[in-house]
């Protein structure tokens, strides 16, 4: 879990081209960011790849309507063919169908864990940034404490301890999903919190916040209406990178056998199952591995593009 907080982010107003502003009637900062994002070739390709992935896992199963657990020993460990475009595993199950099903879980885990990390991080960071003094200090100690925890052993311990009780409440698959999302999100909020706090510390001194205060805006309104929207740019960037990290973590957990139950395919668990057959059926590991690789790379490029688009000092 790399501490991947981009360094050179600023909350200043987007330095919009005046010429551009004249042409269109009204250019919102969001449109301006989109215009800058479009010029980032890698980011746009990343976005297209991710879009294809998402569409593939959502729409794909209805086009390629092969059950994920249809066992056919006559066709086990086959390479790609017309009948099985991505080949089969050791039970003769169709890999394309399993990839699409697993991708849905992997992507869902990624996005859900990012949301958890963002919500917790923004809350902690905002409270710390607004309430200076001991509240701020205590929350930052807590953040440092979480940052100092060794992630993987803790993850394993938490899942080992709580897997069964959560399973009883939410069912096998749902329980695993919630547990994994909460645990990954719960261990990824610290960079967000630090970032949001730093943003708040600088933004709350800005003249437009003071102006809002002088014109009768309550504290909550100052935060929600005036400070938070200006702090969101960098947070979105960190969020995209968190999606990638969460997908990798889910793969790690599944690979170690602590993620979803073994009969539920995810990209990570498919890798784990494939590892014993690497020499006779390399395609089995290759496809889920490539899917993880492509998705994470695409999301990272999107994050890069967003960071550049939000950075007013860059001319794009």
């Amino acid at each position: 879990m790399a501490g991947s907080t981009p360094a050179s982010l600023s909350a200043d107003a987007p330095a919009a081209g005046v010429v551009q502003a004249r042409k269109a009637r009204s250019i919102s900062p969001a449109i301006e960011t989109w215009r800058r994002f479009r010029r980032h070739v890698l980011a746009v390709s990343g976005a297209i790849v991710l879009l294809i992935m998402v569409l593939g896992v959502l729409v794909g199963p209805s086009i390629w309507a092969v059950p994920i657990n249809e066992i056919d020993f006559t066709a086990k460990l086959q390479g790609p063919s017309l009948k099985h475009p991505l080949g089969t595993d050791d039970l003769g199950q169709d890999l394309l169908a399993r990839m699409m099903y697993g991708g849905k879980i992997s992507l869902a885990v990624g996005f859900a864990a990012m949301m958890v990390a963002l919500v917790v991080g923004v809350l902690v960071g905002a409270v710390a940034g607004m309430a200076s003094g001991w509240v701020d200090a205590a929350l930052m100690w807590l953040t440092d404490l979480f940052l100092a925890l060794p992630t993987l052993p803790l993850l394993l311990l938490v899942i080992y301890l709580f897997r069964d009780s959560v399973k009883q409440v939410l069912g096998v698959e749902g329980g695993a999903f919630v547990l994994i999302v909460v645990v990954i999100g719960g261990l990824r909020w610290m960079p967000v919190a630090r970032l949001v706090r730093a943003q708040f510390l600088s933004l709350r001194e800005k003249e437009f916040v003071e102006a809002a205060r002088a014109l009768g805006a309550s504290k909550v309104r100052q935060v929600v209406q005036h400070i938070l929207p200006n702090a969101l740019g960098p947070v979105i960037v960190v969020g995209t990178i968190d999606v990638a990290t969460a997908i990798i973590f889910e793969s790690t957990l599944s690979f170690l056998g602590l993620g979803f139950p073994s009969d539920v395919p995810t990209w990570g668990s498919m890798l784990r199952d494939a590892k014993d057959y690497l020499d006779i059926a390399p395609h089995w590991a290759l496809f889920p591995g490539a899917a993880i690789f492509l998705t994470v790379l695409a999301i990272n490029f999107i994050g890069d593009g967003l960071r550049d688009a939000f950075d007013p000092r860059r001319v794009l």
């Binding site: 919102s28 800005k206 003249e207 437009f208 003071e210 102006a211 002088a214 014109l215 929207p229 200006n230």
Partner: peptide
């Protein structure tokens, strides 16, 4: 009572019309 400040460039929130 209303107040206006010295810095018009930064006294408006950049993300709203």
């Amino acid at each position: 009572i209303a107040i206006i400040f010295q810095e018009p460039m930064t006294s408006l929130n950049p993300v709203y019309t």
